[in-house]
Amino acid sequence: KELVLVLYDYQEKSPREVTVKKGDILTLLNSTNKDWWKVEVDDRQGFIPAAYLKKL
């Protein structure tokens, strides 16, 4: 499984997104879309802008 580091706080703006904090380490589920990556946060799955994440 691939992990990503959150570079900036992000507040979800729709039900398909998730809220994260800078410094969080998340499981990356899908990065095929270059703009929005799907991650897992506390048993929730959702999207975050790829620019907010860095692969570890």
Rank of each mutant, 00 (worst) to 15 (best):
P15K: 10
T32Y: 10
L26C: 11
N33Q: 10
K38M: 15
A51T: 14
Q45V: 13
K1D: 09
V4G: 04
V41G: 07
L53R: 00
Y10C: 02
G23P: 00
V18T: 04
T19A: 05
L7H: 02
Y52F: 15
W37T: 02
R16K: 13
K13I: 07
V39R: 00
L29H: 05
V39A: 02
W37C: 03
V41K: 15
G23I: 00
I48T: 08
K54V: 13
L29S: 03
L28N: 01
L5Y: 10
E40F: 07
P49T: 01
K21V: 09
R44Q: 07
T27R: 14
T32V: 11
K54F: 13
E12Y: 07
K21W: 14
E2Y: 10
R44F: 06
K21Q: 11
I48M: 14
P49G: 02
V4P: 00
K13T: 12
L7C: 06
G46Y: 10
L3W: 14
D43K: 11
L28I: 05
V4Q: 00
Y10F: 06
T32K: 13
G46S: 04
P49Y: 03
K38W: 12
F47D: 04
E17C: 06
V6M: 02
E17A: 06
K13H: 09
Q11T: 15
A50H: 04
L53V: 14
Q11Y: 14
R44G: 06
K38V: 12
S14Y: 07
R16Q: 14
R44S: 05
D9F: 03
D9Q: 04
K22Q: 10
K55M: 09
T32I: 10
Q45I: 14
N30K: 07
G23W: 06
L29W: 05
T32P: 04
Y52K: 05
P49L: 05
D24G: 06
R16T: 14
T32H: 13
D35K: 14
L29T: 06
L26K: 01
V41H: 12
L28C: 09
K34C: 11
K21F: 12
E12W: 09
D42Y: 11
P15D: 13
W37S: 02
V39H: 00
W37N: 01
E40C: 12
R16P: 06
P49A: 03
K34N: 12
V20K: 00
T27G: 08
